[in-house]
Design a protein around this nucleic acid. Structure first.
Lengths: 207, 207
DNA sequence: ACAGCCACTAAGCGCTTGCTCACCGGTCGG
DNA sequence: CCGACCGGTGAGCAAGCGCTTAGTGGCTGT
């Protein structure tokens, strides 16, 4: 149930070779801490215990690193949300599961999530368009659940696109404020947020 | 009621002299568009129709510019929320008003808000501490309303600090996604979000 | 034993950055 | 009528940036 220290589903768990992964982890940390533009290639290489030039053996540019991080992260996000959307159960169950797992990911991997969600416009036009496409899939997954819930009478939502935006917005912003030293664990925030979202869409508390 | 094009309550409306204000407006636009670190002092000066050196007549450093913008913006945010918190009326009324006006500001001044909310750690340690203090006042204002609502039985909130965080988070993130070319006006988003938040805290729809 | 390979490094290139400084021209008190 | 003043400029400095290139050391297959 704990999602803070997974080893297998870390987004870059299957990045090879080892040096390339170390550089990627270093880049995620640095980008999350200081932002893409304030991070130097020397800093990334240094964190990975390598010389500045080593970065360019594995990645063409600093931007390519961000692009790979962003794509891996967004793919993970899409997986989480579509899995929840396509699961069995009531719309309320699926919405709760979507929010819970999405929030747990944003809190547990808040460094990655911060880069993925807030450094989007450091990407060049082509790569950004690619990533925006993945974001639309996130949007579509949540909207599908809300649609179902409204059709089945479980939810009462006047503006589905607006509510979709609000739900995703609430979850995404977790990456901004979540702090490992805080009192809340990712699981607690996930449960709490699932509850808040069910109230937002007017799902009856215990049906 | 419209809050998109106010002239008097623009945060930097009373910045003097004229050249200093033009530089500040230029900086807000540039920071919002590209981020603090990706913005050059030449770009700011250029947008204000001045030479690169002119910036340093009015501001000691680029960081001082960001600091002034951030302080003015946060002061405005504190005003909006404390005004709503101290108003007359039920807790539900005050919460709705707080969310509505806070969201309208974030949407209507989304360039300023983006800088204020997302460029916080580009500030140096001392200035950041100053601004964090203002943020705590925002938090306190919202928490006060929720406290009152729970005490009076209007709201049903299991975790008040958590709900405070969620409400502010939802509002703040408006600055990230709001787009002038979108279909929603700031007033519409404000009304819609006030509604969502009342549901989140378990306020009865029409009491 | 050794040639080939390749991840990695030391050094540095060309450029941009934040910021400075000597200078300029319009305004204003005397 | 003029000197002091001051907001503004043009040119440029030192430092740091992303990225390149020539060279090195330690594995590998034969």
């Amino acid at each position: 149930m704990t999602a803070t220290e997974e080893t297998q589903d870390v987004p870059w768990g299957d990045v090879t070779p080892d040096a390339a992964r170390r550089l990627m982890v270093a880049a995620v940390e640095a980008f999350a801490e200081r932002g893409y533009h304030a991070t130097t290639t020397r800093d990334i290489a240094g964190r990975a215990g390598m010389s500045p030039a080593a970065l360019y053996i594995h990645y063409k540019t600093k931007e390519e690193l961000l692009h790979k991080i962003s794509t891996l992260g967004h793919t993970k996000a899409v997986n989480i949300l579509t899995t929840a959307a396509e699961a069995d159960g009531t719309a309320a169950d699926r919405l709760a599961q979507a929010v819970r797992s999405f929030v747990i990911w944003h809190a547990g991997h808040h460094t990655t999530a911060r880069v993925v969600q807030y450094e989007l416009d450091a990407l060049d036009a082509e790569h950004r368009a690619e990533v925006v496409q993945l974001r639309r899939q996130c949007d579509a997954a949540v909207r599908r659940i809300l649609d179902d819930g409204v059709k089945s009478g479980e939810f009462e939502v006047p503006d589905i696109p607006g509510a979709t935006l609000a739900v995703l917005s609430l979850c995404i912003d977790v990456a901004r404020w979540f702090n490992v030293q805080g009192r809340r664990t990712p699981d607690e925030v996930g449960a709490s947020y699932a509850d808040l979202v069910l109230r937002m869409v007017g799902a009856r508390p215990r049906s």
